[in-house]
């Protein structure tokens, strides 16, 4: 799940990875749930997990890598401590979404998809958070917020997602 990935990351451990995967091995079509679980545990899907997953699910490493790189939610590197998603969908565009997106990249100093060098923040674009009557919409550390313009975004990022 998306919420608070940055707050719960554990350091890499093969044992923990195997245990995390094991909980989903009996499901039908387990690859996506397994990758989600690994990401939730470690904050991202470590390259060291790819061969383990392939072996456990009896698929090729290419299959695992293909899925890992197809889905934009699945990360191959550690995200920043604060994670910001800005909606780029049409409904948010209609109420100043373009300006908010520009402000976000400028004020956070990263492009969409990027993480600040000091690891403080990751900025992602997202196409619709389903809050289309109350845009522009963002999430900060998994918390959804509507009617967010430049000033509100700055305050949310500073407070890690909690409104003052």
């Amino acid at each position: 799940m998306l919420s608070d990935v940055s707050l719960r990351q554990a350091p890499w451990s093969q044992e923990v990875a195997l245990e995390t995967m094991g909980a989903h091995a009996a499901q039908r079509g387990p690859l996506l749930p397994v990758l989600h679980a690994l990401q939730e545990r470690f904050g991202f899907v470590d390259a060291r997990a790819v061969p383990l997953v392939a072996k456990a699910l009896n698929v090729s490493r290419a299959d695992v890598y293909g899925v890992l790189t197809f889905y934009s939610d699945l990360r191959s590197s550690l995200p920043g401590r604060v994670r910001v998603q800005v909606c780029r969908g049409e409904a948010c565009q209609a109420v100043g979404g373009h300006a908010l997106a520009e402000h976000a990249t400028r004020s956070l100093g990263v492009d969409f998809g990027g993480t600040a060098v000091d690891g403080s923040v990751t900025l992602d674009e997202v196409f619709c958070l389903g809050n289309c009557a109350l845009g522009p919409t963002v999430t900060v550390n998994g918390r959804l917020r509507g009617r967010v313009h430049a000033a509100e975004l700055d305050a949310l990022v500073a407070d890690g997602g909690v409104l003052a």
């Binding site: 996506l32 989600h36 899925v67 934009s72 939610d73 997202v126």
Partner: peptide
Amino acid sequence: VGAGAYICGEETAMLESLEGKR
């Protein structure tokens, strides 16, 4: 739970995703 791919709203892509594929 999906993983941020709009195309998975297309029914056959969704089925692929449910099966654990791209």
